[in-house]
């Protein structure tokens, strides 16, 4: 497996104009998968996810000199990706006149026929329960439950306090468990 340079080395290479494209390509290779699945869990559809992911990296390239070292590149990229996903979600909701429940049903039907969805009936039911959550709770739940991301990192990405995130996650878990009528397997991620 290819060993990547550190984020700081790659950033330095880009900013000092020392083969910046090569360094940026390495940055893409390093983060494309976690970012893809982060966006995909919000948008569900592969094509929309692909658009949002490409926009994420293009915007990161355009703004890389503005990057403040107050956060890590990783959290900065996650923040751009989340915003991109949310703006696609907003556009999508703007043109929908259906209730949240009907929209969830519609998306579950689309997932069932999606060639890039490999889940079983339980996965589909879980996705429907997640779709019924408010936007913020949905994102927090995905980042915590699927990606097992520490609250401190989620806090940096979403610019929300750890306390508020814990409350959001707790409410999300309760709603999902009520919907599924069974407890979730939370392992060690409560």
């Amino acid at each position: 497996m290819k060993k990547h340079k550190s984020d700081e080395e790659l950033l330095e290479q880009i900013i000092s104009n020392n083969s910046p494209h090569e360094a940026f390509k390495e940055l893409i290779e390093k983060y494309q998968q976690p970012l893809y699945f982060h966006i995909r869990k919000i948008l569900l559809d592969h094509d929309d996810t692909d658009d949002a992911l490409q926009n994420t990296f293009i915007k990161a390239w355009q703004a890389i000199y503005d990057f403040k070292h107050q956060s890590k590149i990783y959290t900065w990229l996650y923040r751009i990706a989340t915003n991109e996903a949310l703006s696609i979600l907003k556009k999508r909701n703007r043109f929908s006149f259906f209730s949240k429940d009907s929209q969830a049903e519609e998306w579950i039907a689309r997932l069932e026929s999606d060639p890039y969805f490999d889940g079983n009936e339980a996965d589909l039911k879980l996705q429907k329960a997640i779709l019924l959550l408010p936007e913020k709770q949905r994102i927090v739940f995905n980042m915590r439950y699927f990606d097992e991301m520490p609250y401190e990192t989620i806090s940096e990405i979403l610019d929300t306090s750890v306390g508020a995130l814990k409350a959001s996650y707790h409410h999300a878990v309760k709603k999902i468990e009520n919907f599924l009528q069974q407890p979730l397997n939370l392992d060690k991620i409560t």
Binding site: Q32, H46, D50, F57, F117, G119, D123
Partner: peptide, 23 residues
């Protein structure tokens, strides 16, 4: 626990696709 998949070769091609746009 990820039920999502991607088209074959997607992650191999993506860096070059993005680089083409930002070149």
């Amino acid at each position: 626990r990820q039920p999502f998949t991607v088209p074959d070769g997607y992650f191999q091609q993506l860096p070059n696709n993005i680089l083409q746009q930002i070149n």
